[in-house]
């Protein structure tokens, strides 16, 4: 069975969420919540109540970045101090701890920030190619619902959308 995509544009979030609620209660065969994507101009955390929690793995990256980069940073600083041929300076120990902690702290932030950013790009799958079913209005003021479903239930979904008076319905290859 081949699958295809449909996207409906709504003028506000309440309409869109009502449509999703109806879709859920319609119990269509082969319909999965995971195949529903909401495209919105702003963040709508409320949608998680309807679509279920989308897992976010960014913080795992953050954790490892903030853990290992400072460790490596400290080792890097200390070992370069130990291999510096002109070692003793100002009567301080060759590997003085207070300055190295300052630098380790900076490495901690560095690792945290860089790995978080990297995690974001990986988890949000950026950079990505834009779908064909994308409308520039989504970035302005409209809400889009994109659904991937089997062709058999496609007419039912379209009917359902039409009931909620969408501004536009687009379908086809994604």
């Amino acid at each position: 069975m081949s699958k295809s995509h449909v996207m409906a544009l709504f003028s506000d979030f309440d309409q869109a969420s009502a449509a999703i609620r109806d879709l859920k209660s319609a119990n269509l065969e082969g319909f999965k919540l995971d195949d529903v994507t909401l495209k919105s101009p702003i963040e709508h955390p409320e949608i998680e109540e309807l679509l279920g929690k989308r897992p976010v793995y960014v913080r795992i990256f953050t954790f490892f970045g903030a853990l290992f980069v400072p460790l490596l940073g400290f080792l890097f600083v200390a070992s370069s101090q130990a291999t510096f041929l002109l070692q003793p300076k100002g009567g301080k120990a060759v590997i003085p701890l207070p300055p190295n902690f300052v630098l380790t702290y900076e490495f901690f932030i560095l690792g945290g920030v860089y790995m978080t950013a990297l995690g974001f790009f990986i988890c949000a799958k950026l950079p990505m190619k834009r779908n064909k079913l994308y409308n520039a209005h989504v970035s302005a003021d409209q809400i889009g619902i994109l659904i991937k479903a089997e062709d058999a239930i496609m007419p039912a979904i379209k009917d359902l959308f039409t009931k909620h008076k969408p501004l536009e319905i687009m379908w086809g290859e994604n």
Partner: peptide
């Protein structure tokens, strides 16, 4: 813009990332 489409998955990641940063 890296192909940003404002999907709910992107937004969820975005929220967490932005707060962490």
């Amino acid at each position: 813009s890296l192909g940003w489409m404002g999907t709910d998955r992107q937004w969820a990641n975005f929220r967490v990332t932005y707060l962490t940063l």
